[in-house]
Design a protein around this nucleic acid. Structure first.
Lengths: 95, 95
DNA sequence: TGTCAACATAGACATCCATCAAAACAAGGA
DNA sequence: TCCTTGTTTTGATGGATGTCTATGTTGACA
């Protein structure tokens, strides 16, 4: 694994390396339809701006995407990125 | 996912959320025999004490274990923890 | 147009973290 | 015992990060 690959992958792991973000991500992933509006997942113990801040981070890391529909903004997981991260962990050649 | 679970899992993701640590971890995992001494994997572009610092972090997160054999200290991956992290990502019910 | 609700941004602040140089520790050999 | 090599710990420092309050923006509706 070269420096560039490590940089990209680390950015994604880092995004999940915060308890609040991990709970938000998990809530979106497990929500009905694979997507959730912010109002559905905001009960993680921090203020609303903080939730918004963390969702932005997850989005910047490529783990979530968002779309506004009327009053609400819906977040959904990016399946391909998720699968890639999973492979990176389980496919480690622990010979 | 409750707060406590998130705390534990986030600690592991966080440990891999640094490019240097990710490269160190990958180097140990892909090294012959599934283990490597520090001298085998120190060429990641930072000073040797920094390497030691990061290896300690990975160890504290439960991702690596270490053992001293004579002059050298060998690190190896903890397969069970790795598998659990992989499951956490790929088993997300993206219904 | 005005108001309300959902969400995002800005700015401030305290804390954490990656990094290095220097020193300490551990083990083997002369 | 002294020296050399491999590894960890310590202490310092600059930068990143999580959190809040306050404010801005966007869209629905009367």
């Amino acid at each position: 694994m070269n420096a560039e690959e490590a940089e990209t992958a680390a950015r994604m792991f880092k995004a999940l390396g915060d308890p609040v973000r991990l709970r938000l991500f998990s809530a979106v992933a497990s929500h009905e339809g694979g997507e959730a509006c912010v109002c559905d997942i905001s009960d993680v113990g921090v203020s609303q701006p903080t939730v918004s801040h963390h969702l932005k981070k997850l989005k910047e890391a490529g783990l979530l995407s968002s779309e506004r529909r009327g009053t609400w903004v819906y977040y959904r997981v990016e399946p391909s990125v998720l699968a890639a991260m999973g492979r990176l962990l389980t496919a480690s050649p622990t010979v």
